[in-house]
Amino acid sequence: MSYPQPHPRFSVLSSSSLTSLDHLSPASSSTRFSLPAAPSINTTLATPRPGVRPNVYDRNLNKTRAAEVSASAFAFLFSEVVQYTQKRVSGIADLERRLNTLGYRVGVRVVELMSWRNESSSKTPKREIRFLPALMSIHTHVWRTVFGKPADAIEKSVENPDEYMIIDNDPPITRNVSVPRDMSQLSCSSFTAGIVEAVLDGLGFPARVTAHNTPTDAFPNRTTILIKLDKAVLEREEALKT
């Protein structure tokens, strides 16, 4: 994490009070990931007794590769997430920032899981070091892992060279969300933006990622995930070119 500004992404509860130094100190790591305090993460327990459900940490990560979760159950969970968050914020910007923070916590795990699976399944596992292939892999692989389908388009901003967009015509997580008119600026896909931001951070492309509603007649839920890259990334891309 070499970017200069303090990055308040890891703590949902108090982001403003954190300094960048806090992130690196191991003492704060418990607030980052909030591991359950109690039952053991016991890796020596290789063969669990019959009838006892294995600890979630002992399960094979590859078994759930093709598993699906109920979209309805997730929709209710996400609805509660938004309601919970909305009770604790003062405005739309604040709400989006908190959803982004929650998504960031998901994205950190997504990037780790994907690179782990990539390593075990491929003979020549590859880590993207250039931005465009990384963006392509987010558009295809991250989307498929998280949402079960690739995103619909990637665009590059005409005006700003540091801006890229991932477009989803019908984001599954906001399919049932109907934002009231007085909050029309709000995009609950900020959660997705947080996931993208974490993945980009994890791959070494620090960026600010935001979500915007860009409805069309055919796709009223169309959403644009806007990626604004850190200056350092553009400089490195330029240096790698030669």
Partner: peptide, 17 residues
């Protein structure tokens, strides 16, 4: 789908979705 899963709906209140 459209009402109960919508985070901006208050249960038992008029449906504005």
């Amino acid at each position: 789908d459209a009402v109960m899963k919508n985070p901006f709906h208050t249960p038992e209140m008029p449906i504005r979705s």
